[in-house]
Design a protein around this nucleic acid. Sequence first.
RNA 1: GGUUCGGUAGCUCAGCUGGAUAGAGCGUCAUCCUUCUAAGAUGAGGGCCAUUGGUUCGAAUCCAAUCCGAAUCACCA
Length: 589
Amino acid sequence: MNLTTILKQTAAENLLHLYQVNIQPEQVLVNATKPEFEGDYTIVLFAFVKQLGKSPEVVGNELGTAMQKALPTIITSYNIVKGFLNFTISNDYWLELIKNTNPNNLIPPITNQQKIMVEYSSPNTNKPLHLGHLRNNFLGWSIAEILKLQGHEVVKTCIVNDRGIHICKSMIAWQLFAHGATPSSTNKKGDHFVGDYYVKYNDAFKAEVAGLVAGGMTQELAEKEASIFKAAQEMLLKWEQGDAATLDLWKRMNEWVYEGFEVTYKKIGSDFVKTYYESNTYLLGKELVEEGLAKKVFYQKEDSSVWIDLTGDGLDEKIVRRKDGTSVYMTQDIGLAQLKQKEFNNDASIYVVGDEQNYHFKVLKLICQKLQLPAADGIYHLSYGMVELPTGKMKSREGTVVDADDLVDAMIAISKEKTEALGKVSDFTTDQLTELYNTIGLGALKFFLLRVDPKKKMIFNPEESIDFHGFTGPFIQYTHARIKSILRKTGVTVSITNNELLPLEKQLAIELSTFPAIINEAAENLDPSKVAIFAFNLAKLFNTFYAEHSIANAESETKKQVRIQLGILTAATLQKSMSVLGIAVPEQM
RNA sequence: GGUUCGGUAGCUCAGCUGGAUAGAGCGUCAUCCUUCUAAGAUGAGGGCCAUUGGUUCGAAUCCAAUCCGAAUCACCA
């Protein structure tokens, strides 16, 4: 059990015993003691003092004495400053902890294991992936791994948005301007190739609209009347009618895109157990509409469109079936939720989707609950903020996007440059070097996107934002490599025996012991940044320790043994933390 | 207009279930490689925690109002 938990429980028990007050362990506030005071852990007394009607000194003394008696092997002494009861924890406790922690099994599996689905990535097939997709992919992959580490069974899925007007736009532009060109004939990556035609469509569209406006038409009307837009609409209609030639072109162009995506996914490490295609799912949910009508969850208007009234839940009315009988986005999503549940029998489902869809997912969950679909309560939206450039928002239509492939390649190139400049890996083979550059470049990028709170929007400055020093992936990778280098020289631990821990040694032990709690926190909040911040703090602490104390040339053999073990545990904890962020840590760099 | 989310150092961000003197990184300045990896460490400087009021022994944290920014409130997906 976690020491904080032990202290909370013991405090609650003794308060009950001493004063007959019933205080839940969770209500006891236990903090790490601030460095300027003596002690390791602090109980804040103010909360109880009031209802006990005694001074903090009296309560502190009585509680301190009682707790020391209750935990004689853990608490060596206590002191009281104002309303703070500070405990000093025994060296033996920390030594035992260091000794008994298994570097290969740092996280004890939780008791209520669930089957959890994580849907992420969700690309459109009319353009390549960009920076925003990277944030999505890294977040989704990471939260899945964090849940796995806790012991859950996780199913990663992806819904590909492969139909609709935006695809038709690329298709029309290809028909008009490509003259039969293909990715292989132009030697272009398939998704980029198709994306280029999406941009070409928009250029042509804008030019045509401008011409119409110059001829006296209003902007609004011109946008509707532009022939290229009409052609795209017509194509969508043909697609829906199953026109063979249209479907053929659609399949062909989507194939190009998938080939491109596969390369990118492989490079950034995204993987999926199951991929759903919207072209197969967009008609789902129709039976659910009938079911909802029967259950009186939905109601029908005179024009025969079907709605749900959510005003009682503080939301609006929402349409779930058009008057022409076709389903809307929401209907599809309800249908897909049901399908996924049937196929995988999951307990919970996490959707990694941008925060512009917060409302949509709130409604989705509500409707699923009202329809009493299984696992409806387990729907969570991992909502993340937009990635913006210093110049403002990215717009793929205008070509002001940071392309995912370009960015990844640039990061790898920078890591190569920096590594070569340092000249520490002259003994690496060419293959090892390539792998190292990938590891560092991608590590920097992933860490940069994962280290901030997902729900906040973030600003990405290509020139200044990516660094290899400080609060970065490479800093942690470097710390890991550094520890491994030392361990290669010192060998493994033989035995750990009694000795006094120096302040930095103890701090490391304390920091290491919080890892499981950090993982829980990250899982509960669907927030990998907690892990990123933890890994950084741990690495920083180790580096301070390293600068202060020698491992190989420790003052004594017993000291050396303890420090080797601390090194082993730190390396393992860093490795594990980074691995759930999707970042590898090298043995040498 | 309604709803939701945000505003903390020059910049990028932690801290937000109320607790001791508000923290990192980058950038600036100054130190430290005949000793385990200097992608490192140490120190200095940098703050009316958007504003105003309230609750409290105690507020960056909770409540209210105001100001600024974003998203959303589609028979688009």
